[in-house]
Nucleic acid binder design. Structure first.
Lengths: 231, 231
DNA sequence: ACCTCCATGTCGGAC
DNA sequence: GTCCGACGTGGAGGT
């Protein structure tokens, strides 16, 4: 990885056109030739970047560019989309290279998959008498997160989200529409379960007869593994 | 901005839990105290990070940690969510600080707004006899991108996307459902216009009687400003 | 390779 | 402030 601090301007042409006026920034060149342009603020997203696979070439500035103060030009071109990023460097303030090696990668825990596993184990959270049929119940248009039956034996399709948004309600609606055409399953009711449900999503869901269920992840994890919270 | 290359392991606890095993990485500390952990590959997203507003504190490792090879501990805590990131540093290979100043920011050009402007100007792309009523026609559930009338004078609602996905069809469907309840507007037909329309989105749209229209951004820009393509 | 959906999404605008 | 939709969304996982 090469780290360059430079006064530079940047131009991107690709899916859109964008320009960064002259200022001091960090240019991070990764081992695969990809480039990130970071300022000293904002969040993790760079001001501008080129994703791999791409190639970085250094150009000599022509006379006009040199007269404008440009001492070095970087051209980064994406190998498939032909998107390009031009970095016009006016002054290099720092330049260092470092050998990092291959990263073992991130280990995650606590995403939707985990929530699904917990809800499947604690299916009675849907209401008394509910039983799990199966997780990831496959339909023609994709898997329903959880299929269960209620106390009367009727089918219940559960759409699970960390944050319950309108998209999730639409997704569940499509599943319900399809499943209710299947005489083996119909009638199927819907439950929209999430750690947090946005008001508009709740309104839309209830308008369509879909029940909303707010899940307490910490409590569910606590039931699953009591000692993990005692520290 | 401070740049540190270090052998380190990282633990995140917040919306989920995540762990990075010991390896050599870049630690980027921004002026606002936020931290990015980058490897020498992947794309622009860091392996792990903490967004502002947050505070970074350096801790002394205890005896056990020191015996495990940890020479420095960084603790970054988000000020609102209390999410935290712990960086256990085993070896510092590089450490430099740089004054970047405030960035003037990115100037963008060519997104959906531009496409909307062009389609409004070239409304006949919808079909002969079409006339623009207005852009961003406001309804109770949000603005319809373009409202027009067809040759017979009937209303046409246009949903515009760069990439035409199922989401966009659902959005337009909600608008049409609402607008068709308004006797002043009904009957309203729908047009789903995008630079690229995904097959499943097209199927869903046509199944609902929504017409699909693929837009050629370059051609539309060419009509709008002929000289801009002659270079 | 295409298509789908998740994301510690992030970001900007409207209300 | 909250809510909502766009994004150069990126990335993983299934068909």
């Amino acid at each position: 990885m090469r780290l360059v601090i430079a006064r530079c301007s940047v131009d991107y042409a690709g899916r859109l056109a964008a320009h960064l006026p002259l200022a001091t920034r960090l240019l991070m060149v990764k081992g695969d030739g990809s480039l990130l342009v970071h300022s000293d603020g904002g969040s993790y997203k760079p001001l501008n970047w080129m994703s791999p696979p791409c190639t970085l070439t250094t150009l000599e500035p022509d006379d006009d560019q040199r007269a404008a103060g440009i001492v070095e030009l970087w051209k980064v071109v994406h190998q498939k989309t032909a998107d390009q990023l031009i970095v016009s460097i006016h002054e290099v303030l720092h330049d260092s290279s470092h050998e990092l090696g291959i990263d073992p990668g991130l280990q995650k825990d606590g995403v939707e998959a985990h929530l699904q596993k917990l809800l499947a184990e604690q299916i009675e959270l849907l209401g008394d008498g509910h039983r799990l049929v199966r997780r990831e119940y496959m339909t023609a248009i994709g898997p329903v997160d959880i299929l269960a039956t209620d106390a009367s034996g009727a089918s219940v399709a559960v759409e699970l989200k960390r944050r319950g948004d309108i998209d999730g309600v639409e997704q569940l609606t499509r599943y319900l529409e399809l499943m209710n055409r299947d005489p083996h399953l119909a009638p199927v009711t819907g439950v929209f379960a999430a750690q947090e449900i946005k008001p508009q999503a709740r309104t839309l869901a209830e308008d369509r007869g879909i029940r909303c269920l707010v899940l307490d992840y910490d409590a569910m994890r606590g039931v699953d593994d009591g000692h993990s919270r005692l520290f």
